[in-house]
Structures are given as C-alpha cells and as structure tokens.
C-alpha cells in the first residue's frame, strides 16, 4: 500500500472523502506466433507527468523459465521511471499477475482528488511485442462524477474510467 499511503499524505489537505475509481481496460487479442501477456501499469498523474497515485502493475510474479519476472518491469518505461524503480513490489499490495486478452474491470479506492486536471496513465509492454502509453485526461471539479475514455492503437484497446465519491 506504500504508494497509496504516500498519495494520501500528499492529498490530505483537500481530501474530505474517498473516491472510487473504476477502470475498464481492453487488452487486444493478437494474432502473432509468439504471444506473451503484456505487463501493464496504471497510475494517476498531473498534466506535467508528476505522479499523484500509483494504482496497479500487472507482471509475471513467479520466476519462469526465462528468469525472474521483474527483469522486464523496466520495459514499462514511463512507469518504471516515474514509479516502478522506487517501489517495493513485494509489499506494496498494488501489483498482480498478468492478465489475458479481453476486457478487464478494476476498482480502486483512493483519497478524494482535489479539483484539477489529471491523467489516468495506462502503459502496456509486451515481450516480443510493442509498448503503448495512453494518458486519459480528466478534470475533477467539486463532487461530480467524472467519466473519461480513450482508445489505444496497438497494445491497448478501449479504456474507460469513472470516478464517483
């Protein structure tokens, strides 16, 4: 929970309540000879890419025939630079195994975001595949429900998000 705890500290001033963030991510089905599930990271950033809250990272958590799964975390480049390299993955409670192609719905509890502009960043990197980073812009103002969406091109499909408080 470390990342979330840090975010809670940063946001405490403006946080009267908690937000529930629902995210739908589509991982496209690839017609390729060699397919590996992508590594995917999710986080909330400000427009200048400074990190507000780390949400999730999906990676191969068991060591496989090709070595430790953490070896390829560096390929989630932007996430690795901003968050991953200083995160204690074993203890943070915000990581989980990779997921197959298809639609995935996640729900996160986070301290209420102060009014302002944000990005929901979703970054995917696939072994012998590509890498894609989608920033879904959204604006928080007072206590309204926020909805936003974006469409990936290669490694990510449709991304929908909704914040309610």
């Amino acid at each position: 929970m470390r990342a979330l705890v840090i975010a809670a500290g940063v946001l405490a001033a403006g946080a009267a309540s908690a937000d529930e963030l629902r995210v739908e991510i589509e991982l496209p089905r690839m017609s390729v000879a060699e397919y590996h599930r992508p590594y995917v990271a999710l986080w909330i950033a400000r427009p200048d890419q400074s990190v507000v809250s780390h949400l999730d990272v999906w990676y191969q958590q068991e060591d496989g025939p090709e070595g430790a799964g953490e070896t390829w975390l560096v390929d989630i480049r932007q996430w690795w630079r901003r968050i991953g390299r200083t995160l204690e993955l074993d203890t943070d409670g915000v990581s989980r195994p990779t997921r197959p192609p298809g639609q995935h719905t996640m729900s996160y509890q986070l301290p209420a975001l102060p009014p302002g502009d944000y990005l929901l960043n979703v970054e995917a990197a696939r072994e012998v595949g590509g890498r894609e980073l989608i920033g879904v812009p959204f604006r928080v103002s007072s206590n309204r429900v926020v909805e936003a969406s974006a469409q990936g091109e290669n490694e990510l499909g449709a991304i929908n998000m909704r914040i309610s408080r």
């Binding site: 430790a68 070896t71 991953g84």
Partner: peptide, 10 residues
C-alpha cells in the same frame, strides 16, 4: 548491453 535494468540481480 543495457543501461537501465529491473529486478533483484542482473
């Protein structure tokens, strides 16, 4: 072979 790496040992 790499400038930036992740994992416990490489």
């Amino acid at each position: 072979s790499a400038f930036t790496l992740s994992g416990e040992e490489q």
